[in-house]
Design a binder for these strands. Structure first.
Length: 692
DNA sequence: CAATAGAGCGCT
DNA sequence: AAAGCGCTCTATTG
């Protein structure tokens, strides 16, 4: 029968019996309501499943029947002058199973050892967890993760609305299906809002989603073994579960504290805005970069400040490289440029304005912006961000809606902001971060020399570097010396040049050059190592790449001259250039790839270590919960910021939770993975600000 | 009008 | 010639 729509208990039971016969199945959900894209909050009304030889779709709350009585339209509101959506009207829906019945019957399957496959699986796992009471257990496979591991730069070949073929940076199911099967099955974009489509349309749509997820799994998963990525994907499959369980509680915030801060920053913004206009002598759009450039850099006689620009925009740098004439719009107005004129009243006002409006943007994002009509994303005091394990080319996590990995951390404002991330009464936050994890990874790979010995001896890495390059004993290293050394260590990890080291350490360019030379003298093994990484990557001629500690690939075709030349031609497209300019571009591209090879090895391996730590933390939390089965005593992982983990724990178990977290971040499998010790710093607090 | 690019800025 | 992100805004392009 096609489509196989399940409307009775009997039908569902027999389908579940069929699915139980196999070791894996794919599933997909459709949700409705204002928060349909927030899995911890949405209302699930369809669930489809696919396995060998069969795909079924289960409706349990679709609001529409098979007949559309009137289409949805947009109408202009006479008062607000804005377009408002008038929803479509449908015939009555058929009788469907109740959600509680559906999930009762599905439970044995979802809580069995059968592999659950999905495309962006945490979304579906968290969505159904509300009905099951818990996140279904693994093993898991996520076809987005599989695709990402097979090619971190994948760009499917899709057709535009005009019928033109092009490469699109996307990992969406529809784009992968179009790429692999040349099939577009969602021309109507049903998935955007299923409540605006008929019962049978959504039935077919939902069914195809899980059908193609299943086919994609069949296509991609075997390739992982061929590419020697089995060990890597097994780790990522565990992370899929960790991320799902992390999304359920979310990050706790104090809405009242956030509102207070919004009041404060709104006032400051108004004051800053007035100060900007006063200093500029006129009103202008402060958010507009070209207008800001005019006001700052045009001569006094034409109404500007006549300031001397200190920095070019990226586009300006490109022009300079080609010896083209620079315009006023090629000069940067970023914070570094403003710092050079810190005594100018307009510049002072602009700096305050930009900082305050940035922070206000975050607050409006969380609390909902009445001006933009966006809703609050705080539910019962919690923010449920999406942590994507596949979000980067290095293996780090990315976070979105909202991004919880770029919350202000420094200065007075950072402290204020982080104080709004607050455990509810009776609970505490436990925050732990690794110390110099990237340098430790580097020392591990090298396995000898000053850096390595220093970590074995338990010396602070920046202090040790300072002692070495300044030629003084460790206890005579000053704050300034350590700051310079920190810049040098950054230079190794990121491949920074002397200019950057100088600006970071507050020293001259000449001094920075001398320190870099001195560093190469004192740490020859580090420089030999980074050279070796680059050479080995380049030597894999047809397939230049590095692999991180987890086994994940970073392909870097541009590290070869041939690859860099191809890329250079592409960047010039249409523009005129001479041989010298072309060579300069090739060199820049190739050098960038070299820095990326070294950095990805280090950053990606550090990311792997924290992923292992998260798996260990999650396991400890799970087995602890299995022992007492008391939600009021539950310890849960709730956030990660690259080298930092955050756990929510009941007051009376905070110390215990801290020990658990430390053990998970330093112990277990991690102990046998590195030749140098790891270090972590863990604190308990009511808020993120005081758990640091 | 919608989609995309660029600049800028928050974090590790 | 500083690695990796996400978000917001404006300007430009289709």
């Amino acid at each position: 029968m096609f489509p196989d729509i399940i409307l009775t208990e009997e039908h569902l039971r027999s389908a579940v019996a069929y699915f139980m016969e196999f070791d894996a199945f794919a599933f997909d959900i459709e949700s409705i309501g204002e928060h349909r894209l927030i899995p911890a909050q949405n209302e699930v009304v369809w669930l489809s499943m696919a396995t060998y030889g069969r795909t079924i779709v289960i409706p349990f709350g679709h609001p529409n029947g098979n007949k559309m009585i009137s289409k949805s339209t947009r109408k202009k509101n006479r008062v607000t002058k804005k377009f408002e959506a008038i929803p479509a009207v449908f015939s009555a829906p058929p009788e469907q199973l109740r959600p509680s019945v559906v999930f009762d019957i599905l439970r044995p399957l979802f809580f069995s050892d059968r592999r659950k496959v999905g495309h962006n699986l945490p979304f579906d796992l968290v969505s159904v967890s509300k009905y099951f009471g818990d996140v279904p257990p693994g093993p898991y496979s996520d076809t987005i993760v599989d695709q990402w591991l097979l090619d971190e730069n994948f760009e499917p070949l899709v057709t535009s609305a005009a019928g033109k073929l092009y490469r699109k940076p996307s990992k969406k199911l529809k784009d992968l299906v179009e790429h692999y099967y040349q099939l577009k099955y969602d021309l109507e974009e049903v998935g955007k809002d299923i409540s605006q489509h008929t019962f049978k349309t959504v039935a077919l749509y939902s069914l195809l989603d899980s059908k193609y997820t299943w086919l994609l799994f069949q296509l991609l998963h075997p390739q992982l073994a061929d590419e020697d990525l089995l060990r890597t994907v097994e780790m990522e499959e565990q992370i899929t579960g960790v991320v799902s369980r992390m999304a359920v509680p979310g990050a706790p915030v104090s809405e009242s504290r956030l509102s207070e801060l919004r009041e404060e920053f709104s006032d400051r913004l108004i004051i800053a805005e007035a100060a900007v206009y006063r200093a500029a002598g006129r009103k202008f759009d402060i958010g507009s970069v070209p207008q800001k450039q005019q006001v700052l850099y045009s001569p006094k006689k034409s109404g500007g400040q006549g300031l001397k620009p200190v920095k070019l925009t990226p586009a300006g740098k490109k022009k300079r490289a080609l010896n083209q004439e620079l315009a006023i719009t090629d000069y940067s107005t970023d914070s570094e440029s403003l710092e050079a004129h810190a005594d100018n009243p307009l510049v002072q006002a602009l700096s305050e304005h930009s900082e305050v409006s940035k922070l206000l943007g975050y607050l409006n994002k969380y609390l909902g912006d009445p001006e933009k009509g966006t809703p609050s994303i705080i539910f019962s005091g919690c923010i449920h961000a999406q942590f994507k394990q596949y979000g980067t080319v290095s293996g780090r996590f990315s976070s979105s809606e909202p991004n919880l990995q770029n919350i202000p951390a420094h200065g007075e404002n950072g402290k204020k902001f982080r104080s709004a991330f607050q455990a509810p009464p009776g609970w505490k936050l436990v925050v732990a971060d690794y110390g110099q994890v990237e340098l430790r990874v580097l020392a591990h790979y090298i396995g000898r020399g000053r850096l390595y010995e220093g970590f074995l001896a338990g010396v602070d890495a920046h202090t040790a570097t300072a002692a070495a390059v300044y030629g003084v004993p460790v206890d005579e290293v000053t704050k300034e010396m350590r700051q310079v050394a920190k810049g040098l260590n950054f230079a190794i990890v990121y491949g920074a040049g002397a200019a950057k080291v100088a600006s970071m350490g507050g020293i001259t360019l000449q001094q920075a050059k001398e320190f870099l030379a001195r560093h190469a003298e004192m740490f020859p093994e580090i420089h030999a190592f980074t050279r070796r990484v680059v050479e080995r990557c380049r030597d894999r001629e047809d397939f230049p790449h590095i692999r991180t500690m987890s086994g994940q690939y970073r392909r870097l075709p541009e590290i070869t001259r041939k690859g860099a030349m191809t890329a250079a031609r592409r960047t010039f497209k249409g523009e005129k250039y001479n041989q010298k300019q072309f060579e300069a571009r090739v060199w820049a591209i190739q050098s960038k790839a070299e820095r990326q090879a070294v950095n990805t090895l280090i950053q990606g391996s550090a990311a792997y270590l924290i992923k292992v730590a998260m798996i260990q933390t999650d396991k400890a939390c799970e087995s602890d919960f299995a022992r007492h089965k008391n939600a009021a005593d539950r310890i849960q992982l709730i956030m990660t910021v690259h080298d930092e983990l955050m756990v929510l724990a009941p007051d009376h178990r905070a110390d215990e939770a801290r020990e658990m977290l430390e053990e998970a971040m330093l112990g277990g499998e991690l102990q046998d993975m590195l030749r140098v010790p790891l270090a972590c710093d863990a604190h308990i607090g009511q808020t993120w600000a005081d758990a640091k």
